[in-house]
Amino acid sequence: MSTINVKVAAVEEVTPLIKHFRLESEDGADLPPFSGGSHIVVTMDAEGRTYRNPYSLMGSPSDTRAYHISVRRQESSRGGSVFMHERVQVGMRLKITHPVNLFSLSKLAHKHILIAGGIGITPFMSQIEDLKAVDADYELHYAFRSYEQAAFVNELEEKCEGKLYCYADSQNERIDLTELLRHQPLGTHVYVCGPSPMVVAVLETARNLGWPENNIHHEEFSAPPVGEPFKVQLARSGIEVEVPAEMSMLEAIEEAGVAADSLCRGGVCGRCELTVLETDGGIQHHDHYLSDSEKVSCRSIMPCVSRTKGKRLVVDL
């Protein structure tokens, strides 16, 4: 994958858990243009291992002098977000991929319902710029733990002009999804980005209310779930890779020097799909790409987020 060399131009602590980074190209040139909802993958070289984490671009798509990303320090940390928080400083060089948009706004939509959970707000920050530019009808529903921990609320309030609805868990405020999705006019599209249970709840509610698949969009940026260590055998390359508890299978394969395809690194796009040839313990599917019946059949795995419950897995790679 072709990469862009960037330098960190500014770092700002948005909340005790969230940091905002401004990235500029190393040679000061403009960065490639992007559309609202795009993400980049940041490569971090820590001692001993490489992290590759996807982050949404949250700046305005009309500004290509810099990219803006926000990183939440993950509690069950596996390193990537901690590295960004503790090690990355102004002036440091990083490698990033070209922006990819797997969470783009539908051009056919008459109305957009955006639902964000916590740090899942980031892709919507750039999308709102796009929506405002065409004066589109939208609502942003933003759920978080508490006002103290929520990022960008003031900024959004200003930008969204009355179209922002906030829900603080600490004050027992919850989004009533059924109520929200039951009364939307035809041609409405819903977008959700947040923790897995929230994504699942939105998908299920919309589907149960008869929303067509085309009108439902989701993105999930969570650290790949940790699990038990296991060994994966790459049948075509003829090598065996150890997957430690706190590393995803995709990361372990990359670490072993084998080129594996990936795009979203969050179990959504389907790019990393691998055919399972053998398993001794079944698959723990954490993705939103495979259908339920495909998951049951255990013939495929999305190594960016999924693991095996067994000791050994053989895949066609």
């Binding site: 009364h183 006019p185 035809l186 209310l209 929303w211």
Partner: peptide, 9 residues
């Protein structure tokens, strides 16, 4: 259709 909501099939 003018008054219909999402969920109409």
């Amino acid at each position: 259709l003018r008054d219909a909501t999402m969920g109409l099939r």
